[in-house]
Design a protein around this nucleic acid. Structure first.
Length: 717
DNA sequence: CTTGCTACTCTTTTT
DNA sequence: GAGTAGCAAG
């Protein structure tokens, strides 16, 4: 068992300085692999063990539940810190949910409020659009929701919302209605958890003061990823004692798209003039080669403080940069290389990760693993709690916990089919509205006529019975009851193989429900709503991990493959014309590279198929930033790797079996028509195996590189 | 009301 | 290429 003392002894001087910082606001700027999490944990241990701060007076906010859990486990393992369990630890969202539960009526919801996830939120936007007679073709629910979410992250209420564009003006109207629908459902969305907590504290001095008094120390991990709402929240909580201890790295800020504002780091310096800033630049993870390469990429971002990361780990192998022909060959290269590394005992399968920009890229990699008969672990992608059967099962529990939740009701009232269709449901809603009653009251109190009458009455009976049992049964018992009585079990187990898979998922959820023990239903649902996918990541399993670059944050692996190093993939195409977003892509690349301890592979495919079409992409601009001496290009010469442009790369590519070349169909200057991009002019064309690679400038879509056969490009004579 | 078919959009990244 | 929304027939 570790002791607090031995923990402190293993720290370097800079880390120690941070851990033992005197009271007051402190910001630790910590580069990748510098023991950031360790510093945060040690700080908590230090406060409890040395400074004798009572554990319940410490709040530690982490980015994922997993990080919180890890910290708690570490503290619990330490001698003399048995009461570490009392430290308030969790994500912003989970901490807010806890605070709100207590004072829910003050913000206009019941104690058993529901938390609406991304799916539910989109459904609410759709409902609002329908009510306001707005065309959801023209105003995409997801885009509207994006505007609303951004506003909420910046603490802008519907009546304060100011629009700059017509689109925003529409979104602003939807925002108001959206919030009304949420409250009618006795529900909050993710963003509300933060925003309403801030409002609760700002408008209720008694609540605020109680909280401010209680938390003597507030610690925040991954500070660069906080948004405005979160920033205001922590400064409120730490407002009295001012012992705010933040740890972060602006270079690893990769969540601007969901409202994170790394300028919070600057804001902190303005708001706390006595801020104590400590920098940690020694790296304990990667080889110097990897660090130098990562720095060469991040260095090109403007407006950043220049730090030099160093390690005592030595240089290690060069970074392997390879170009493969397609994404399938790229994936095959990954699998082959992993096999070699494992054979040579250079790494265990569990030490290896494959990272990509978008979840869609995982498929090619997965296929290669399956073909090779190799085990792998996939993080994210088909998120467990996003599965239909899981959402259905949870929706049953949700309507029992919160009868006002009509979004969940709509999900399950006709699943399995009971003869209650859209029309009947709409009538039910209308009845409720006409009587000014809740949909639950309308369903259970009313006499139902017509064909669907019996079906409605039957469902009402079931629902009432479940609610009556809510406080008597444990979540697990209730779960079993509902799944059987509702007919959902037989609906899922439809005799097919997929049906069995779905049932297995439902049973997995059942295990979670049973593990909840006597936890009240409402709290169980909150917890489930706030778990993230990486929280369930099992580090002990021995197989390579497949994950997005975003999901990789905070993790480390001996060997890292980053695939899809092409302009348009990494950096992503939606970032190419925006310098701010491009800077974020660069940070994402930096995060990915610095996950590697020993070996780093940067791969790209010459052509890649995305939504049916195979297109050649230019090499990622990030590859150009790597110094020659740090990279291993294999047997090919530099310049022939496709780092410069696709054409030189194409010349060095030797097809496995040369086939007779098809005659060139397109010459520069040729007018062409494409089904999606419209009319354009050929800029250049190169033959490619038995296909033709054509670069075309389209009037509407700009410059594109296409395959003549796959794209169905037509000549206009 | 349900089922099954066709047509169409879509890809960042997630608490 | 895949998932879904929308429509037509039973």
């Amino acid at each position: 068992m570790a002791t607090a003392a031995s923990l402190f002894n293993s720290l370097n001087p800079a880390q120690r300085k941070a851990v033992e910082a005197k009271d007051g606001p402190t910001l630790v700027i910590a580069g990748p692999g510098s023991g950031k999490t360790r510093v945060l944990t040690s700080r908590v241990a230090y406060l409890l063990a040395v400074r004798k701060v009572a554990p319940h007076r410490v709040m530690a906010v982490t980015f994922t539940n997993k990080a919180a859990k890890e910290m708690r486990e570490r503290l619990n393992r330490m001698a003399g810190l048995a009461q570490a369990g009392e430290v308030a630890m969790g994500t912003f969202h989970s901490i807010c949910a806890r605070l709100l539960r207590r004072d829910a009526p003050l913000i206009g919801v019941d104690h058993n409020f529901a938390i609406f996830d991304a799916d539910d939120q989109i459904n609410v936007v759709k409902a609002a659009l329908t009510e306001l007679n707005i065309d959801d073709k023209k105003y995409k629910p997801a885009a509207i929701h994006g505007v609303i979410s951004r506003a909420k992250n910046e603490l802008i209420w519907p009546d304060q919302f100011r629009s700059k564009t017509y689109f925003e003006e529409v979104a602003g109207r939807v925002y108001g209605r959206y919030n009304q629908i949420l409250r009618a459902n006795n529900a909050l969305d993710f963003d509300d958890l933060l925003m309403e907590t801030v409002r609760l504290l700002q408008e209720n001095p008694a609540v605020r003061e109680r909280l401010q008094e209680r938390y003597l120390h507030t610690l925040v991990d991954e500070f660069q990823d906080t948004n405005i709402a979160q920033y205001v929240l922590v400064t409120l909580i730490a407002g009295k004692h001012r012992n705010l201890f933040c740890v972060g790295d602006p270079d690893q800020s990769i969540y601007a798209w969901r409202g994170a504002d790394y300028r919070n780091v600057m804001r902190l310096q303005e708001d706390f003039a006595d801020l104590n800033v400590i920098a940690l630049d020694q790296n304990y993870r990667s080889t110097q080669t990897i660090l130098d390469a990562a720095m060469s990429v991040i260095r090109r971002n403007p407006k950043r403080r220049h730090i030099k990361l160093f390690t005592e780990r030595g240089h290690g192998p060069k970074i392997v940069v390879r170009e493969l022909y397609t994404e399938d060959e790229e994936a095959q290269y990954v699998v082959d290389t992993i096999r070699e590394l494992v054979d040579q005992q250079a790494a265990e399968p569990g030490d290896i990760a494959v990272m990509y920009r978008t979840n869609a890229q995982s498929r090619a990699v997965e296929d290669a693993f399956v073909r090779a008969g190799m085990q792998y672990r996939l993080v994210g992608a088909t998120r467990f709690y996003a599965r239909k059967e899981i959402k259905d099962a949870l929706a049953y529990l949700r309507i029992v916990n919160n009868p006002a939740d009509s979004v969940s009701l709509r999900r399950v009232i006709n699943t399995p089919p009971r003869g209650i269709g859209d029309k009947t449901f709409a009538q039910l809603e209308e009845t409720a509205r006409a009587r000014g009653a809740s949909i639950y009251d309308a369903l259970t109190a009313g006499q139902h006529a017509g064909r669907s009458g019996k079906a409605l009455a039957d469902f009402a009976g079931l629902w009432q019975k479940w609610i009556a049992l809510r406080d008597e049964l444990s979540v697990g018992q209730l779960f079993d009851k509902i799944i059987n009585a509702s007919g959902y079990r037989d609906y899922v187990k439809d005799g097919t193989e997929e049906g069995e898979d779905r049932w297995a998922n439902v049973m997995e959820l059942r295990n979670v429900a049973i593990a909840a023990g006597d936890l009240p239903l409402g709290e169980f649902l909150n917890e489930v709503a706030l778990v993230s996918e990486t929280d369930n990541y099992d580090e002990s399993a021995s197989a390579p991990t497949l994950l997005t670059l975003h999901a990789a944050k905070g993790l480390e692996f001996r060997v890292v493959f980053i695939v899809g190093l092409e302009d348009g993939v990494l950096p992503h195409s939606r970032s190419l014309d925006n310098p701010e977003q491009m800077a974020e892509e660069r940070r994402l690349m930096y995060v990915g590279m610095t996950r590697a301890k020993d070996r780093l592979y940067l791969l790209r495919a010459f052509r890649r198929s995305s939504w049916g079409m195979s297109e050649a992409g230019a090499p990622s601009r990030f590859l150009d930033d790597l110094p020659d001496e740090l990279i291993d290009l294999g047997h090919r010469k530099r310049g022939a790797t496709g780092r410069r442009d696709a054409q030189t790369a194409q010349q060095t590519w030797t097809p496995p079996a040369p086939r007779k070349p098809a005659p060139a169909e397109f010459a520069p200057g040729q007018r062409v028509y494409h089904q999606k991009f419209g009319e354009g002019m050929v800029l250049r064309s190169t033959r490619q195996r038995d296909d033709e690679e054509v670069e075309v400038f389209f009037e509407k879509a700009g410059k594109k590189r296409l395959s003549a056969t796959v794209s169905g490009l037509k000549r206009i004579e």
